[in-house]
Design a protein around this nucleic acid. Structure first.
Ligand code: SF4
Ligand code: SF4
Lengths: 133, 133
DNA sequence: CCTAAATAGGACTTAACAAGTCGGAGTTCG
DNA sequence: CGAACTCCGACTTGTTAAGTCCTATTTAGG
């Protein structure tokens, strides 16, 4: 409950590693080996990050990944959203709308919870990649 | 991902309701009906809250639940912890120790994440029941 | 002193999601 | 061409959340 998924953790570790080696093009295998992360899983995460434009991919033999922006332009929220698709919500009505919860009309806690939510969002939003390298 | 469990949401709704009716002893059935919450589930949540001392229970015919403390002495963290048992952690190494994660030694993100964690804890810690009634 | 209305709590089943795996396709350098 | 890469969806498995069921135990009130 209230836990980051492994995909996100792996993604953070990976993109931090990429950021820490700005002059190299690093491969998925390299990262998987170094951090003992299941290769297939990591590969998918990197693909997601690439598709969302946070990193670029270079296919083929001397391929791999590198950053597209400055580390201080990439926030942790951006990374999470890229990997999990905007699911960073403490309650389901916040991402999936009022209809998703059949208690919505009588729910007395959604407004206080949305304050907490804003707080949490802010925490992930103000932390950039540059700060964790 | 990063979502409160239904048990916690139900617990919050329930305890808020109890707090909003200070002179009454309210029953589980009453709350379940009013908020369309599955009775059995809610009952267990209330039992947990009672066992942890946040509310008192009165058994028997005219029984039910009522608060033990002032609403401003009960924080949302206390409620969550009572229901879920101290599982309010963004990463598993934070509650289950270093051994629980086989990436721990090489993990490069645990220290930044613990800052986020502190932030989140603070958010739940500073919000009291009095504020959500 | 019996009964109805309540809490107490374990065991169980089901549903949802996260984690990991597999197979095959596309790309590029040498 | 072939090795070293990325790409991507479908699949299986494992874990946790959500909900149900059953059977105590307690107690006010007739
Ligand atoms: S409506 Fe209330 S209960 Fe339903 S999801 Fe939003 S917060 Fe949780
Ligand atoms: S060690 Fe790193 S990866 Fe493992 S749980 Fe803690 S934060 Fe997540």
């Amino acid at each position: 409950m209230v836990r980051l998924s492994k995909k996100v953790e792996y993604g953070l570790i990976a993109i931090r590693h990429i950021a820490a080696h700005p002059s190299d093009v690093v491969t998925a295998k390299e990262i998987a080996d170094k951090y003992q992360i299941p290769y297939e899983l990591l590969a998918k995460v990197l693909q997601r990050l690439s598709r969302e434009g946070l990193i670029t991919s270079q296919q083929g033999v001397r391929g791999g990944y590198s950053l597209t922006k400055n580390p201080n332009e990439i926030t942790v929220s951006m990374i999470i959203n890229a990997i999990e698709g905007n699911s960073l919500a403490i309650a389901q009505c916040m991402t999936e709308g009022p209809e998703s919860c059949d208690v919505f009309n009588v729910c007395t806690i959604k407004s206080p919870l949305s304050k907490v939510q804003a707080n949490i969002e802010n925490a992930f939003d103000t932390m950039t990649l540059a700060q964790i390298v």
